[in-house]
Design a protein around this nucleic acid. Structure first.
Length: 109
DNA sequence: ACATTGACTAATT
DNA sequence: TAATTAGCCAATG
């Protein structure tokens, strides 16, 4: 299995600050870049990241990862909304999705 | 090896 | 803004 890939994803997600979020595509890109930088062949993509999230092994802030539209996964929408309220995640006016413009975070430093 | 499936995305309507 | 379509990568049967 890609235990390495899965670990990379979870580790990156854990680094997302409270009140910020990342998209599947962005996470996939960051990790792909790392693999290439390490001399490996780029693999994975948004769907692979999503697949790992679906496994849901361990405790990590999966609610800070949303699709490109800023909408939460169709599985735990209600819970995601609660989490967002708890950490004051910037939401759109209708509160149906994250205000990516303000909330997207990119790993720097 | 082939078909199906999925916590996706981007472009098109 | 929302629905459709086509492309996408890896896992599964």
């Amino acid at each position: 299995m890609d235990a390495d890939y899965a670990d990379a994803v979870r580790e990156l997600v854990r680094r997302i600050p409270v009140g910020r979020a990342m998209t599947y595509g962005l996470i996939a890109e960051v990790i792909a870049d790392r693999i290439v930088a390490a001399g490996g062949t780029a693999r994975g993509g948004p769907r692979q990241v999503g697949r790992i999230m679906a496994l849901g092994d361990g405790d990590w802030p999966w609610w800070r990862v949303v699709n490109a539209a800023g909408a939460p996964p169709p599985h735990h929408v209600a819970e995601a909304l609660d989490r967002w309220d708890d950490e004051e995640m910037p939401l759109t006016a209708d509160r149906s999705r994250i205000a990516l413009r303000r909330a997207v975070w990119f790993p720097e430093e």
